[in-house]
Simulated assay, not measured.
Amino acid sequence: MKTRFGMGRIVGDGHMYFYIQDVAVLPEFQGHGIGDAIINQLLQYIRSHCCSSAFVGLFASHGNDTFYERYGFKNHAPGMTGMFKVME
């Protein structure tokens, strides 16, 4: 998903494993809901293409864990930036 203010990208097998590779918003537009719109579009795409119990992983940049936690991602290894969720 790409806008004039930010972008997001998914890689994976298109069925069982997905990795949110990038979510980026231009600094001057951060804090205006653009990141939320991007992640919602990415998760909608994943929901429409995944099988049940699909794995979705990502690496959050330092300090952005709470952003992804709002979408159900969990950090299962304290001190690491890797997060994941399993689609239902």
Rank of each mutant, 00 (worst) to 15 (best):
E69F: 15
G35D: 00
G63L: 11
I10K: 00
A54N: 00
M80A: 14
F55E: 04
G79K: 03
I38Y: 04
L26I: 15
S48M: 03
I10Y: 07
H62N: 11
L58E: 02
L42N: 00
G72R: 01
K2T: 10
F59P: 03
G8Q: 06
R4I: 08
G79Y: 01
V23Q: 07
L26K: 14
Y45L: 06
S48N: 14
G72V: 03
A54I: 07
Y45I: 04
L58Q: 02
Q41H: 11
S53A: 07
G6W: 06
D22G: 09
A24N: 15
E28C: 13
F5W: 09
A60Q: 08
G14D: 03
N40K: 13
V86G: 08
G31F: 10
V11N: 09
H49D: 00
A60S: 12
I38W: 03
N40V: 13
A24K: 12
Y45S: 05
F73G: 01
Q44W: 05
R47V: 14
A37I: 01
H32Y: 14
Y17E: 10
L58V: 00
G72T: 02
D22W: 09
N40T: 15
Y68N: 14
R4N: 15
S61L: 13
T3N: 09
N40R: 14
M83V: 04
V11H: 03
K85T: 08
R9F: 05
G12R: 01
Q21I: 06
D22C: 04
A54R: 05
I34S: 05
I39T: 15
H62L: 15
S52E: 08
N75Y: 10
R9V: 10
V56C: 10
S52Y: 02
G57L: 01
G8E: 06
Y71Q: 03
Y45N: 07
S53F: 04
S61D: 15
M87E: 11
I20A: 02
K85H: 08
P27Q: 07
K85L: 10
G72H: 04
G33L: 06
H62K: 10
R9Y: 08
N75P: 10
M7C: 06
A24Q: 14
L58T: 05
G82C: 06
G79T: 04
C51R: 03
Y45G: 02
A54M: 02
I10N: 02
P78M: 00
F84Q: 09
H49P: 03
G8I: 10
I38P: 03
Y19V: 08
G35S: 04
P78T: 05
L58M: 09
V25P: 08
V86F: 05
I34A: 02
K2W: 02
I46T: 12
R47E: 12
F55S: 04
M7S: 07
Q21L: 11
R47W: 12
Q30Y: 11
Q41R: 07
N40H: 14
I38H: 00
G12T: 03
H49Y: 00
D22S: 12
D13P: 01
G6K: 01
G72W: 00
M7P: 02
H32W: 08
V25R: 08
D36N: 11
M83W: 07
K74F: 15
H49E: 04
M16N: 04
H49T: 05
T3K: 05
Y68D: 15
